[in-house]
Simulated assay, not measured.
Amino acid sequence: MPQRTVLVVLFDGVQSLDVTGPLEVFAGAERHTPGTYRIRTASLDGAPVRTSSGLTLVPDGPLAGARDPHTLLVPGGEGTRTSDPELTAWLRAHGPRARRLVSVCTGAILLAGAGLLDGRRVTTHWSYCAKLARDHPSVTVEPDPVYVRDGHVATSAGVTAGIDLALALVEEDLDRDAALTVARHLVVFLRRPGNQAQFSAQLAAQTARRDPLREVQRWITEHPADDLSVEALAARARLSPRHFARAFRDETGTTPGRYVDRVRLEHARRLLEDTADGVEEVSRASGYGTPEAMRRAFVKALGTPPAEYRRRFRPAH
């Protein structure tokens, strides 16, 4: 198996976790299968850089002395807001030579500025998707996914999404066992699929202020197959249905029904991606009751029925 060089670009104002998260994944894969990866870091002049959190990172050397890598990884951070023309020029000249272009968070802004994302589907941190799309109309920005693969270009959302993407790349380069070993060592999920939304239901909605409503939110997440009608949830919160519905909407920013719908959809997606359970079993476990009810929910929210969703997004075993 050929050794793959992973070159990580460093610059002042870089987000430290955008660098160290993927690096820990590739380093773990190298420990699992020695000779797989050669990991290098480089800044423009080879000098140490100060991250957005104040941490100082010492690169292995200057970009000028770096050999063309298999994987060129560009992290994000505050330093991407004002691109260094010299760094942009280096990326424009050397990016096309890499076998695989990877960005984490707002690193996509640097790649786009160098013209390396033209005609590509990409993502970035949710708060910068609109800016990226506005500044680079030739780039198709998808604001929802954790990461997006388009040919040899792979872009991810913020911070921890870089770990998800790196694990997916390790699974592609080696195998699922290697990625699983690394994930266990880092105590993270093996694979948060790229199509998964940057926000889960719990993150997309606000956390309720009052304990009874927070308890209801937790209950919904842990018991998607239970009776989650407004009446049942109101009884759990010890409120009248009308008072409960109004308070839930006011404190979370969404209605109980929409919250339940999103939790059930996420639960069903995880089961389809990570288990071999049949569609009927998944529909019952996720609170849909029947495969037809789940099919309607998938088509409405995702534009694809459950069986097709599983075919597209469940990894090969």
Rank of each mutant, 00 (worst) to 15 (best):
S283R: 09
L17N: 03
V102P: 00
P306V: 07
D227W: 10
W126M: 03
H125F: 09
H32T: 11
G107S: 08
N195I: 10
L73Q: 08
V122F: 11
V148D: 04
D150I: 03
G35W: 13
Q198P: 04
T82C: 00
S83E: 15
A166S: 12
L116Q: 05
A235M: 05
P69V: 00
A307F: 03
T82A: 13
H267I: 00
E308H: 05
K300G: 01
Q202A: 10
F313T: 12
V104L: 10
C105Q: 01
A197S: 14
G253R: 07
T255L: 00
T71Y: 12
L7T: 06
T221Q: 06
V6H: 02
L17T: 08
R100E: 15
G107M: 06
R295H: 10
S200G: 11
G113R: 05
A301G: 07
L272A: 11
R184I: 07
R236Y: 11
T290Q: 15
V187I: 13
T221H: 04
L302I: 03
R38K: 12
Q196T: 14
T80F: 11
S138E: 15
L213T: 04
T33V: 12
A232F: 02
A316E: 15
D84I: 01
A108R: 10
P241W: 06
A161D: 01
A89Q: 10
P143D: 12
A27C: 03
Y288M: 03
P315M: 09
A179I: 01
P291M: 08
G107Y: 13
L117W: 02
L132K: 04
G76L: 04
R121W: 09
F189S: 06
P75T: 09
H185S: 12
G21I: 02
C105E: 10
G194R: 01
T33G: 00
G257E: 14
E86P: 05
P315S: 08
R184D: 14
G21Y: 06
L117T: 04
A197E: 03
S43Y: 09
V282H: 11
H223Y: 05
W126N: 04
P145I: 03
A245E: 14
T207Q: 15
G115A: 05
L55A: 10
L63A: 02
R134E: 15
Q196F: 15
H152R: 14
H136V: 02
L116G: 00
R310E: 08
T254I: 09
Q3M: 14
L302K: 10
D68G: 00
S156I: 05
P62F: 04
A204N: 05
P75E: 11
A293L: 09
E24A: 12
A161E: 05
R99S: 06
R81F: 12
H243C: 00
S229N: 08
W126R: 13
G65C: 04
E266K: 13
G158T: 01
D227H: 06
L174C: 11
R40N: 07
L165D: 07
V102G: 01
A27I: 06
G28N: 11
A133Y: 09
V19I: 12
G95P: 10
L116D: 02
D12K: 08
D84Q: 11
A157T: 08
A183K: 13
R242N: 06
T71W: 07
R284T: 06
I220C: 03
R218I: 07
T207G: 05
V153A: 08
R99H: 14
T51S: 11
R134C: 03
R238L: 05
A108I: 04
E171D: 15
G65A: 11
P241Y: 04
T51L: 01
E215W: 07
Q202D: 14
I163L: 02
L213M: 04
